[in-house]
Write a protein that binds this DNA or RNA. Sequence first.
DNA 1: ATGAGTGCAAATGCTTTGCATCCTG
DNA 2: CAGGATGCAAAGCATTTGCACTCAT
Lengths: 165, 165
Amino acid sequence: MGKRPTTTLHFDARAKEMLDDLKRAGLKLTAQREAIVRQFASDVSHPTAQELYDRLRQEFPQMSFATVYNTLDALAAAGLSGTLRLGQAARFDPNTEPHHHAVCESCGEIGDVPAPSLAPSPAAVKQLGRAAPGFRVRAVERIYRGLCAACADNDNDAAPHGDIS
Amino acid sequence: MGKRPTTTLHFDARAKEMLDDLKRAGLKLTAQREAIVRQFASDVSHPTAQELYDRLRQEFPQMSFATVYNTLDALAAAGLSGTLRLGQAARFDPNTEPHHHAVCESCGEIGDVPAPSLAPSPAAVKQLGRAAPGFRVRAVERIYRGLCAACADNDNDAAPHGDIS
DNA sequence: ATGAGTGCAAATGCTTTGCATCCTG
DNA sequence: CAGGATGCAAAGCATTTGCACTCAT
């Protein structure tokens, strides 16, 4: 302890990058957008619009939902963020590196799993070709479902000698 | 033409199977559930609750949304159907064989892509282990994103010599 | 100054719930 | 005949929209 984690610097840089890209895309730079991007760019938790809104309102009490959605849409349109749909509410993802997601079926936590690329493997293309001839694959997205480390541990504690529930 | 496709027989059998399994699970067999299962078991289109409801109301004008949701929940709880979340509305899937999904980014059509298993490959487990140590994977679900045959064709027609849009 | 962006509130879409009634097992 | 299942309507979230106003460019 004592040394600031470099990730903090990394994420500030990401926020600046996003804001620059937004400007480059011809969009106006407002105080709200800056706040949203600063909040969002460093967020690894895949927040919902509601979650972002709640955090932002502490800083900007008059911030509106519409603005949060508008900004997230703008970021998505500019390719600066992705959308994740696992439940009824959309989750937003500032990570633009190719990656998959690991979802804990017990606590709902969502983790990023870096991938070299989202391009389909030859084997996948072949299997797809059999099931859906003519389908032109662009990307393959994976969801790993299971138990996160913490929940897997709890599971072991609850049933150390096999599942007796 | 002249010979009934065997798929029809297959799907009728699937409906009966589902109803038997529901009964086996200790659930009551009602006229509504039978209608829902008959409608659903043979549906390859991954319908939303609204879509099922609309079709069912033609046969059962007094059928309620709550019943549709209740029955789909019961089927899911009994492992007889799956849920697919790609947009705000949930889509229901009577296919219990291991499979992935191919989603057309243009028209939204969803196709099933049979898979030998949803168990994670050793390579996937390794990559996951690096990103999320301790995560216990149960299943890997894939979404193939791209263009269905029809939409890919339209694309070719619109820009036969490269994308000029 | 002009039009994109914002806030507010109402509208819309999906899903769940409460409760009186019905009907299967 | 008891408890699960149904229908109806209202409530609960997530998201979008219309419109008057503001502010970055």
